[in-house]
Design a protein around this nucleic acid. Structure first.
Length: 423
RNA sequence: GGAGAGAUGGCAGAGUGGUCGAAUGCGGCGGUCUUGAAAACCGUUGACCGUGCGAGCGGUCCGGGGGUUCGAAUCCCUCUCUCUCCGCCA
């Protein structure tokens, strides 16, 4: 969430900038300011009364010690009214605080100045395109290739679970494992520490990274324990640093994790989501950084370079898009999407999304750092990106590398797979 | 799943109704001594909110929430977590 300080100091700026995200928050911002003023007034009042109460309590303590029981009991009488007043004020104080919070969490992050205007994905800005689009004579879409070579089985997954939960078989399974290991090894070379987190998380974690309360519907909910299955490793990996005060010297913190990801994707099925294009369960390696506020945009570039190296090494044609105001996520200040071209579908498929959240997530997480000379802890900046999500990469590899003899495995993956062709 | 014990500052650990934001030790920071360092000694050492230009002042926080009391780290209820024993089990 946005910091109260920013809203207090520059309400017009907040309202103006959020128009780029297609929302008008003028009313909410005004309510927040009013609410905050009321909160301050209320606190000033209660603090005064509490101070008085503390004073009397101490006096009573002293009187008892000196054995002046009558005087002490007399003093007690004066506290009854005070006590009631404090209770009433305290209640309204916490109600005001709850309301304020409820308002604050409805505001999306302020988009960075580079974010293009526009409301739909049509308005995203292509900033780079590279790689050769293969010219195929005979092109089968991946959903036919997987049947032809018997490597991924959707029907079987439907039998075991339901639609969108494929079963990977033989070389198909091994290709998954190869990609995961390749991505993790590349991440390690780039300085990321591997973590293997839980893939179910509690409510506080869901809130910390912004999936809750708004996007509750995206996650599978385990109601018996009130746990959620992770839609991305971002949730557990970022929440490691919830309620943490880091030493400035520890920054940047660079973590990565492989996890399966679970998404309900309610109501988002249609013609474009055949085969591997959209799943309820898929594999992904995620990179996460926690950095000094001054460094976050350099780090964003660094992360883009890393993701770019992955698609390049896999030999996939790709483009990089800077997301426009309407397409960028609620929590992000600046996001770049990577898309690879899948030659049989003749479509660009999103395989990575790299974002700088600035201090928006950090404020929810209460993740701060303290410098050697700084008195006050300061919010960190958080960033994350997929590096990479597997299914669409697999789709593109299968489609782009198909030959009459089988599907050629990209050179970098051959050592991981132990075979160079799927036939 | 059954029985019991516990949760205190960065860590260890005292504190069972009042002057406790909390002894003590370790760690951290500053200083004295030293060519430098170590040792020793002295000082210092949390977060949040409000208020003030500021020094400061006021409030809240001893796992979370609620209660008793003039007053709660301390008593009661409840939740979560940790440990020990038993059962089950990869």
């Amino acid at each position: 969430m946005l910091t109260l300080k920013l809203i207090e100091e520059n309400p017009a700026f907040v309202v103006e900038r959020l128009k780029i995200k297609g929302v008008d928050v003028a009313e909410t911002v005004q309510k927040i300011i009013d609410n905050n003023n009321l909160r301050k007034e209320t606190q000033a009042k209660t603090d005064r009364l509490k101070s008085e109460m503390n004073r009397i309590s101490k006096e009573i303590g002293l009187l008892f010690r000196e054995g002046k029981k009558d005087e002490a009991n007399k003093a007690k009488g004066r506290t009854t009214e005070l006590k009631n007043e404090i209770k009433t004020l305290d209640t309204s104080f916490s109600e005001i605080g709850d309301e304020l919070n409820a308002l604050l969490i409805t505001l999306p992050n302020i988009p960075h100045e580079l974010v293009p205007e526009g409301l739909t994905e049509e308005d995203n800005l292509e900033v780079k395109r590279a790689g050769e689009i293969p010219q195929l004579v005979e092109k089968l879409p991946h959903w036919e290739l997987i049947k032809k070579y018997d490597i991924i089985d959707f029907d079987l997954g439907t039998k075991l679970t339901g639609a969108g939960f494929p079963v990977y078989k033989g070389k198909g399974a091994k290709l998954q494992r190869a990609l995961i290991n390749f991505f993790l090894d590349e991440g390690e070379k780039a300085g990321y520490r591997e973590v293997l987190p839980p893939i179910v998380v509690n409510e506080a974690s869901g809130f910390g990274t912004g999936q809750l309360p708004d996007k509750e519907g995206m996650m599978y909910h385990i109601t018996a324990e009130n746990f959620y299955m992770v839609p991305t490793a971002e949730v557990p990996v970022t929440n490691i640093y919830r309620d943490a005060i880091l030493d400035e010297a520890e920054l940047p913190v660079k973590n990565m994790a492989y996890t399966p990801c679970f998404r309900r994707e309610a109501g988002s099925w249609g013609a474009h989501v055949r085969g591997l294009n959209r799943l309820h369960q898929f594999d992904k390696v995620e990179i996460v950084q926690i950095v000094h506020p001054d460094k976050s945009y350099d780090v964003l570039d660094q992360m883009l370079t890393h993701v770019e190296s992955l698609v390049t090494k896999l030999g996939l044609p790709y483009r990089i898009l800077r997301l426009c105001g309407g397409d960028i996520s609620f929590t992000s200040a600046l996001t770049y999407d990577f898309e690879v071209f899948s030659a049989a579908q003749e479509r660009w498929l999103e395989v990575s999304s790299v974002s700088n959240f600035e201090n928006f997530q950090a404020n929810r997480l209460k993740c701060r750092f303290k410098g050697k000379d700084s008195k006050k802890p300061e919010l960190v900046h958080t960033l994350n990106g997929s590096a990479l999500a597997l299914p669409r990469i697999v789709a593109a590899i299968l489609e782009n590398n198909q030959t009459n003899n089988g599907i050629k495995i990209p050179d970098v993956l051959v050592p991981y797979c132990g075979f160079d062709i799927i036939d």
